[in-house]
Design a protein around this nucleic acid. Structure first.
Lengths: 189, 189
DNA sequence: AGGGTCGATGAGACCAAGTCCCATCACTGG
DNA sequence: CCAGTGATGGGACTTGGTCTCATCGACCCT
């Protein structure tokens, strides 16, 4: 048996999500979160740099997406490489067992400006990562920027649909479909 | 003569920019900003909801852009409507006398994550405004989302170039050129 | 001229976020 | 049995942000 209860950060994140749903983000104190997890304020800030970050722990997403873009066949165009990355994400991260948690988390995020702000920053950093990954494939800078923006849009659309409990499809197929739709919209002409 | 020195918010913003340049954002206290402006903490928070917002005062940008999109000729496609909005912005807001201030401000923003975060949120809200404006023109939802994302990219490119002191062109022409480049990149095919 | 009003500012108490430093605890290895 | 180690606890301290009440300076009205 371990010295302490295992997975302190996980317990903190779960407690935070519960409390944010119950009382809202602003009305919840870091001390309360820590107490519900059987810990203290000190430990909270040892695992998370600030209160917002407790809902953004899993930071591996960017890495997985970048890997997926890098490992796309060399013949693939920019948007296809992005699609390859989103597929990889659907297989390794946005799995079915994570869907319910993601939905609850997203509802809390949408309801609080402070959390939306953090999410906005994460998305921008993610887009920057996509641009870098595309440039490493030899995609010209401007093209990479356009493709990354469209990739971010595809992500948004697919993620919203995936999180929606009425939809039982996996993230990968949803992203593929969203990409096809975006292509069909063909705004550029 | 006025009862107090005029334009308290403007003085606060100027003092804040100075201090952020001198000591950095985190090392500057709201009380210090207020003192340099000849005011107090109370007055600071009367004009700005938080410390970050002191560099985002203008707030009229979204409105101007939306107006510009709405007033584009009915025959104009989505991206042309966005270009019309960016032109309007270049004429009424991103004027030559504001360029130096914008450059200093942007340098501070880029250097501090907390401020980049706020900027990220503003951009997302701006993109949402563009989508709404396009939908009011009858543009289908998905097409509007794509056009707004590309419009945001054009904005970024043009703004970076405009802020760069080596470039003496106005914001409008720079945006037009950036839009043409983005179109030429033609990622969608 | 003098008192009342009103809008902008100041003063200070108060709470929560976040930082820091040091103590404590539970187990491990010699 | 004792020293070491890593995760946790405790509490002081700074700052952002809220709130309430006092003050001040000009204007109005009689």
């Amino acid at each position: 048996m371990a010295r302490w209860q295992p997975d302190a950060p996980g317990r903190l994140a779960a407690a935070a999500l519960d409390l944010f749903e119950e009382r809202g983000y602003e009305s919840t104190t870091v001390i309360e979160i820590a107490e519900r997890a059987g810990l203290t304020k000190s430990t909270f800030f040892r695992y998370f740099p600030d209160k917002r970050e407790v809902l953004f722990g899993g930071g591996t997403v960017a890495g997985l997406l970048v890997e997926g873009i890098a490992s796309a066949p060399p013949t693939a165009g920019p948007l296809d490489a992005v699609a390859h990355g989103l597929d990889a994400l659907g297989r390794t991260f946005f799995t079915a067992d994570r869907r319910e948690f993601s939905g609850r988390r997203q509802a809390v995020l949408n309801a609080h400006t402070e959390l939306r702000e953090r999410e906005a920053l994460k998305r921008i950093d993610l887009t920057a990562s996509m641009i870098e990954a595309l440039e490493r494939r030899g995609v010209p800078s401007l093209t990479a920027r356009v493709a990354a923006k469209l990739g971010a849009l595809v992500w948004e659309i697919a993620y919203d649909q995936w999180v929606d409990t009425n939809n039982r499809e996996g993230f990968g197929p949803l992203a593929r479909q969203a990409l096809a739709d975006v292509r069909a919209a063909g705004v550029v002409r």
